[in-house]
Design a protein around this nucleic acid. Structure first.
Lengths: 183, 183
DNA sequence: GACCTTCCTGAGCGATCGCTCCGGTAGTTT
DNA sequence: AAACTACCGGAGCGATCGCTCAGGAAGGTC
């Protein structure tokens, strides 16, 4: 909030620093996917990223800050994808596009946000985006579509789900009938 | 599997032991609800239950065993409740009956089961029970109902959900129209 | 009463935890 | 080249971790 955010970093030192910071965020997501939030520690993330342990504390104020930053990054990415969707087909493709391990990791972070007051904004952002999409795609059945999307995403995380199966459920839930126009 | 399971324990020592074991399971669920799986430790659970730390290792082979036992207990309870449901109204009541904190804790354990091969059976049990209920209540749209139930449960955990709201979505998703017979 | 089984618990070990500190290195600016 | 800045990384502190162990205490059996 207080720091200036240049559109492109010209300072070579800062650019390397920013890269390493992102590598730590990626490593964090991989560790969560493998071992869950309980598996996160400064040293484990550092090892996963191939950097010394102290690097974590240089780029993040605390391990919790690392976790929260990872959550925000993941959420930003998904919100952008959600907002780009306008059809049931696109929605099915999005839900089926991520691997199970990554989805499980993202749900772990989602639950973290659900439990902590200081992260409610992240949950609310997701909720608003999903509700917006639901109203956009199926104006009369927005609440139903929102629930189905949440459910399908959970099934994709836990048991896996292919695109055509997801689409069939989405159509079934929104009252789509064979021969109707998209979505 | 190898131990005899008497229908009622007459030995006072064993009965107290069984009680304490259950207290530890309850304490575990409370700690998860508050701090997540990452907040679980032998000493923290023991403190929450009001027993010495060594009691955990007496009643459970390891902290992981404590976690797995808690998961199985929670799953058993929910499966029994799921199997008792036969109408949309009953389903809505069940979904809305648990507090948010408890639901978040149960999802944490659910994700643990989703990530670990040795716990797949628990996920599969849940999946089979939900699918069975869905086919029972709405034979033609079983897959849709299963997805909606998962989604509503997630929403109940994250944002809260009242019974009437849940019922409205369940009816909307299954094509129920005003004036039709239950469910 | 003696004897046995079951449950209990405080002390403590080695490992790992989050985090601090500080000397060092390498780009950038003057 | 000197001064400055940003990034780097090994050492190490106190706290907590999972788990072991050995010595009771208490209920049950004979």
């Amino acid at each position: 909030m207080a720091s200036t955010v240049p559109e492109t970093i010209t300072d070579g030192r800062r650019r390397r620093g920013a890269t390493r910071r992102r590598e730590l965020l990626d490593a964090t997501l991989r560790v969560i996917a493998r071992d869950g939030l309980a598996g996160i520690s400064q040293r484990r993330v550092a090892d996963e990223a191939g950097v010394p342990a102290s690097a974590v504390m240089y780029h993040f104020a605390s391990v919790d800050d690392l976790l929260v930053s990872t959550l925000r990054e993941v959420n930003d990415r998904y919100l952008a994808e959600l907002e780009a969707v306008s059809t049931l087909g696109g929605l099915a493709a999005l839900i089926a596009s991520s691997g199970r391990a990554a989805l499980v990791a993202e749900y772990d972070l989602f639950l973290l946000a659900a439990r902590r007051d200081d992260l409610r904004t992240e949950v609310d952002r997701w909720d608003a985006a999903l509700r917006g999409l639901a109203e956009r795609v199926t104006p009369r059945r927005g609440d139903v579509l929102a629930a189905v999307v949440n459910g399908l995403w959970l099934q994709a995380a836990v048991s896996g789900l292919d695109e055509s199966g997801a689409l069939a459920v989405l159509r079934g839930a929104t009252g789509w009938r064979q021969g109707e126009s998209n979505p």
